[in-house]
Amino acid sequence: MIGEDDVRYVAKLARLRLEQDEIARMTSELGKILSHIDKMGELDTTGVPPTAHVLDVANVTRADKPSESLPRAEALRNAPAVSDDCFRVPKMG
């Protein structure tokens, strides 16, 4: 059964800040959802391969030719902060 500490740990992995009330609600909701999902455990899946892709295609490649990419100004256009033609971010903690 999933507990509040598990939820805090997973939120950390997901880089997702949750407030205390969200953690409590999430713990109860995830518990219910996962217990429904645990139904999969009833099946004998011995020897059944996992699905990697639904269509019979593999190793789709393209010619290794250089082509134009997004201009720098366009790529930076939606950035919350920019300096020296780069994305600007806060310092590492």
Partner: peptide, 30 residues
């Protein structure tokens, strides 16, 4: 006003996503 990079990631996502999206990210990450 993030204090550092990790704080920016976590609060941006915590404040930017709604409850169902957070729920799915949590189930998926778990």
């Amino acid at each position: 006003d993030p204090v550092d990079l990790l704080d920016m990631y976590e609060r941006t996502r915590g404040e930017g996503f709604g409850p169902e999206v957070k729920r799915r990210i949590m189930i998926g990450t778990y």
